[in-house]
Structure formats: C-alpha cells, structure tokens
C-alpha cells in the first residue's frame, strides 16, 4: 500500500513536471521543473531498491548537470520568453501520442520472457551500494575506466570550447580591434 501510494505520487508529479519542462516558454521555469522531476525520479529509484542509483541521480543530475545548466544560462538571456515558430504542432502531438500509445501497449502486454536469467544477481546480505561496487569493479571494470576517460575528454572539451577567450567576444572581435586601433592612434597623437 505504501509503495503503491508513493509510486503514483512520484509518477504523476514527474509526468506533470516534465510536461511543464517540454511546454513552458520560459527557460527558467523549464529548468526548475526539470530539476524537480529529476529529484522525484530518484524517489522512484529508491522505491525500486536501487539506493545507490538514486543517490547518484541526485548528485550527478540534480547537483552537477542542473548546476551546469544554471551557469550556462548566465550566457543566454533567460528572463525573456523563448519565441518558437511552430510549423505543424498537431503533427507533433499526433506522433508523440502515437508513440506513447505504442509504448504503453508494448510495456503493459505480458510478454516478459521466462527464460531470462539474472547475469549478475543481487547478492544477499549486503547493501545495494556494496553489491553495486562488487559488480562494478569486477565485471564492469573496463567500461568503468572507459567512462572515466570519456568524462576526462568531456571536461577538456568543455574547457576548450567555453573557457578559452572568455573576455573576448567572438562576434565583436573586429569592432574591438578597430576601437583598439583608434585608441592607439589617439594615444600616438
């Protein structure tokens, strides 16, 4: 009963929040509702017994990714409403609705295979974080290391792309150069 109530609260709230994310015209509202929806999704992970995944979701998504978006929004004008020209809104909703219908039929059909066996079964007697650690550092060690290298590459790419020439406008560089040369000429005079 408790799980039932919790699941439906989390599910309905997440759906509404993500709908706001997708439909809102304001970047700030959109980002805030996305962050709140991610917090509620971590609640779903806790319900599923994936404690460590829920904590990682909170730390990485709500903490790191949303903070990154918040910092990036300083570069863009976030207070203005986003104007988007919709060419064919009905078609979009038709496609999305059809896709949702197909998913719901697919997933609610009792077609779960019986011959599937757990490759790395949950170990009894240890917590979720411990069990995850045991599988992650034995069976999934190579993908783990590759993911570490990928994060390093992403960090370097982020620094190179956004961090270089922060004080230097890429679009206005010619204007600035002209101003500089004018000032230099004035100085010489």
């Amino acid at each position: 009963m408790y799980e039932f109530v919790a699941f439906y609260i989390f599910a309905i709230a997440t759906t509404i929040l993500f709908l706001i994310t997708v439909m809102s015209k304001n970047v700030l509202y959109s980002m805030t509702s996305l962050a709140a929806g991610m917090v509620l999704i971590s609640g779903l992970f806790f319900l599923l017994g994936a404690d460590f995944l829920g904590v990682v979701q909170l730390i990485v998504y709500v903490g790191a990714v949303m903070a990154l978006y918040a910092f990036a929004m300083m570069f863009f004008d976030a207070t203005k409403d986003v104007k988007e020209k919709q060419q064919n809104p009905q078609l979009v909703f038709l496609l999305g609705g059809l896709m949702a219908l197909v998913f719901v039929i697919m997933f609610s059909a009792p077609v779960i295979g019986d011959n599937i066996q757990a490759l790395y079964p949950v170990v009894d007697g240890v917590g979720n974080a411990q069990a995850v650690g045991m599988v992650l550092f034995t069976k999934y060690l190579v993908p783990f290391e590759v993911a570490a290298v990928m994060l390093l590459v992403a960090m370097i790419a982020g620094i190179i792309l956004a961090g270089k020439k922060m004080d230097y406008s890429l679009t206005k560089c010619e204007a600035i150069d002209e101003e500089m040369s004018v000032e230099l000429e004035k100085g010489e005079e």
């Binding site: 994936a50 460590f52 995944l53 990682v56 979701q57 990485v60 998504y61 790191a64 990714v65 990154l68 978006y69 990036a72 570069f75 863009f76 599937i116 066996q117 757990a118 490759l119 790395y120 079964p121 949950v122 069990a131 995850v132 599988v135 992650l136 999934y140 993908p143 993911a147 990928m150 994060l151 590459v153 992403a154 960090m155 790419a157 982020g158 190179i160 792309l161 956004a162 890429l170």
Partner: peptide, 30 residues
C-alpha cells in the same frame, strides 16, 4: 529480475549524459 546489470547501464547512461551536457553547453556558448 534481481539483476544488477540494469543499474550498471543506468550508471553509464548518467555518465554519458553528464559528458554530453559538458560538451554540448560549450558548443551552445560558442
């Protein structure tokens, strides 16, 4: 299924999403 592989894949998806955001936001700023 009582299997931990699902959680593992979710971890790697989170890692991919984090790096995607880092690179993507750099490109957006440019």
């Amino acid at each position: 299924y009582g299997d931990l592989s699902g959680q593992m894949f979710a971890f790697f998806i989170i890692a991919v999403a984090a790096s995607e955001v880092a690179v993507g936001l750099g490109l957006l700023i440019l």
